[in-house]
Structure formats: C-alpha cells, structure tokens
Design a protein around this nucleic acid. Structure first.
Lengths: 242, 242
DNA sequence: GCGGCGTCGGTTGTATGCAAGACATCCCTA
DNA sequence: TAGGGATGTCTTGCATACAACCGACGCCGC
C-alpha cells in the first residue's frame, strides 16, 4: 500500500488530476499497478491528509485549495509552532536541549554569507532540524499530531516557498532575519519567556507569508512550489466549491 | 464500513480493550459481524483519528493517553479556538453572524439559574452551537480540520467533562463564568479586537482544565468521561510506551 | 411532445481466498 | 547446557470475484 500511497500522492501533487474531478478506482488500478484494496487504503489516507475529499455518491476527488488556504496554512503553522515554543519555554528545556538548538543555529550562521544553491539546501535541512528539535522539546504528542496535519499539506512545510527565494537575491536577507528569530527563540526558551517565544515563533512563520506574497505576484514562480496545480485562481473560486 | 467504524469506536471508548494490546482482526470480525475489508478500513480510520496506533509488525493497538495528553488537548483546543476567535475578529463578522452568536448566548442565560439535568443538556447543546458558529465565522477550512483533529479525541470535545459538573453544585458557577466569556467574545469579535478575542477563547477553554483537575482528584468521576479507560495512571507511564 | 419507468453500464462497497512475513517453539548440535 | 536453525502456526497484506447502488439513457405510454 505504501507504493500506491507514495506514487498517488506524487501524481496528485504533480497536477495529473483536475481538482474536483472524480478519481475512479479502476483507471488508477492499472496506472499504479496495484489492486483495488491497497489503492482504496491509500485514497482514504490521502483524504485524512487533506489532499482528497470524498464526493457525495462515494469516491474521491482532489481537493482544490485557495490562496486563502495557503495563507491560513502559514498562519496556523505559526500558531502551532508558537505553541510549541511556548510549551518549550514554560515546561523548561534541559541544558542539553538548549545546546542542541544552539548547535544547529551555529551551523546555519556561516551559510548566511554564501549565495550558492548548496548552501540553500544545507540551510533548509538545518532549518527543518531546528523546528523538529523545538517540537521535541515541547514534549506534546498531541501538538505533534496537530502540526503534522498542517505540515503534510503541499504548501504547509517549514521550507515551503523557501526554494523560490533562491531566485530573488534581495530576499536572501530573509535568511538573516530567520536566523535572528532562531536566536531569539533559544533565548526565550532558555529564559522561560513563554509569551516571547510564542510571539517570535509566529512572526518567524510569517516569513513564509512574505515569500508567499512574492510568489503569488510572480505567477511563473508558482510552478516551483509543489502542488501548485491544486490552487484555484481567484476567479475560479465559485466553480471549485462544487 | 460505517457500521464497523461506529461500533468499533464505541467498543474502544467503553474500555473493551486494554491499551497496548494487539487488536487481532479475526476476533473483531466475528464480534462486529463484518468482513475483514471494511474492518481494516475502520481500523485505519481510527488510527488517523488518533485512537489507535500501528504496531511494528503490522496491526494496531489502542493508544494509551496520559493525563498530560488530556491537559494538552484542552490547551490545544484553547489555542485553536483562540485562533478562530481572532480570525473572526480580524476578518470581520457580518451583523447577521453577530446576531446569531448573541441569540445563542441569550438562550443560555435563563439556564444559568436552573440546576436540573435537562438544563445541563440544553446548555451543552447551545454551548456546542456557539463554538461551531464561531468557527464558521472564522472562515478557515484548514482551521476546521485542525480543530477536528483535537475535538475527535475522546476527551477533547467542547463539552468534555462538563457533564461531571452536574455532580458538583459549587462548580455551577463555572457556567456563569463561561457565559461571561461568551459575551466578551461577541464583544471582541464585533469590535475587531483580535488579541482580546484570542485571549478570551483560550481562557474559556481552560475551564475544561479546571474541570479536569477536579475529575482527576475524584477518581470515581473519571468513569463518567468517555474513553477514561484509555488513560494510563501516572505510575503506569513507563509501561504504556511499549 | 412530455413525463415516467425500466433497464443497462459503470462505479463503489463487501466478502473471501491466497500468499508472504513474523514470531515462537522445539529440536538438534556443538 | 546453551545457542542456533528450522519448522509450524498465526498474523497481516493483497488480489479478485461478487453484490448492491447510482446515474443515464432510451423507450413506451399518456
């Protein structure tokens, strides 16, 4: 079933299916090379993930997202990561955990001056590790789950729309700002300043909002973000709701 | 499959299975009277819901929750409902929507003086409608989904642990406080005071925390909250993680 | 000509048969 | 006696066949 799930998710994100159109099982069966049983399990999984929605008469269709959804995803990630930061601060982090965060951030620092693609990749990896570490320190399995529900969305990831920055030299400053946010977060967590940690994490997530606005202004960049084909343009909004 | 899902969820919440024990399919098949196919679909659904977790070698087991999980569920519901309230305030509610909230709250008011069981039931219904309406006004499908993930937990519902209050006459004052919170929320939303709305909704959710602490002190009351059998007592914590 | 009804194609939902994998047990060997 | 390997059973995962449902089209009657 894993094979069906991975391949199907990939197909959907690459825009193989029109949002709203019925996903008949039999065509998918021969396309994916698995039987109906694991296929249906994969469909159900993707529905819980939010990529599909079930139609009235049974069956599924790929869900259409609006630009408002993209903004909400960023905002909600900020809210939940803010909560993670607050939990980490309120509940106390061990010295070892603080050191771990600091270490990740220290590795990011030398990357800020560089401008090549490799440094971007390294940055995204370290960034993701920083966020994952903070979530660990929050020690809340339920928060993990809630965040997972947002992060699993095509444009909900921590590094979503960061890649697009590589194209815009001026937005490289954003990395400097993000690094500063990380520093502030460590300070706040260490000092048990819950409110500050929460506010900082929210603002930190809003960096993605800035990127999003840039991307939405340059339509051609939308191609770079995964699942862009699922996003309905404003004038299609009323059609997509059927 | 609906039949299997509903019945299985009921069985789990009523404590028919030990947390951590393997849920073999064949016994469930004859117990639920459905075949393995819909049963497996139901199992997968409950896993996505968070009631089950999958074991290493395949198969599922009911998940064990800790008291910390219960507290986190309340806190997270507060965070998300706080966000809903803030969205409602920031994005503006129509007069009609404000009126709708006010109307629900007005119906709650006369119930505060009474103390019978019926009034409790009526209160819970209206309370749920108030929260649902606020969520509508927030106009964020993604927020809906995130909240759903918390509310679907056995002790995550809006009215979770409210029933237990019926036993404690002094905690009836809590309803008065909750009513006041609702009033404040309406005011804040109407006046576009996002921060106030968010803070109020968080505090409002924490009412459940107060109830939770009461319940945890009176072990015998735990029986009343659905899914109580899934909650591991503190001394069992290390065992439950296997 | 229009409305209702029946039939047919296609789709999803369910049941069952089959195979592959994991775990435990037991025996054999060193 | 202890360890390792093989075997058998129990389990899940997959494929396929069957049944039930929904919609559409066409036909017949009014």
């Amino acid at each position: 079933m894993m094979r069906a799930l991975l391949r199907l998710r990939e197909l959907i994100l690459s825009g193989e299916f029109e949002p709203g159109e019925r996903m008949s099982e039999l065509p998918l069966v021969e396309r994916l090379g698995v039987s109906r049983t694991p296929l249906r399990l994969a469909l159900a999984t993707l529905e819980h993930e939010g990529l599909l929605r079930n139609l009235s008469g049974g069956g599924y269709a790929v869900r259409a997202f609006t630009q408002a959804d993209m903004r909400d995803a960023v905002e909600l990630r900020g809210v939940l990561e803010g909560t993670a930061a607050r939990f980490a601060a309120e509940r106390g982090a061990t010295r070892r955990e603080i050191r771990s965060l600091r270490s990740i951030n220290a590795q990011i620092e030398p990357l800020l001056a560089r401008a090549d693609y490799d440094s971007f990749e390294a940055y995204m990896d370290l960034n993701e590790r920083f966020h994952a570490r903070m979530l660990e320190i929050a020690r809340s399995p339920l928060l993990d789950r809630a965040l997972e529900g947002i992060l699993s969305l095509p444009f909900g990831g921590v590094n979503a729309m960061v890649l697009t920055e590589a194209e815009l030299p001026e937005s490289r400053q954003i990395l400097v700002i993000a690094h500063r946010h990380h520093q502030g977060l460590i300070e706040a967590i260490e000092g048990r300043q819950g409110a500050r940690a929460e506010a900082l994490a929210r603002e930190h997530a809003r960096i993605a909002l800035t990127n999003l606005e840039i991307v939405l202004r340059h339509r051609e960049m939308l191609e770079l973000v995964p699942g862009s084909s699922l996003i309905t343009l404003p004038q299609e909004l009323e059609h997509s709701s059927r």
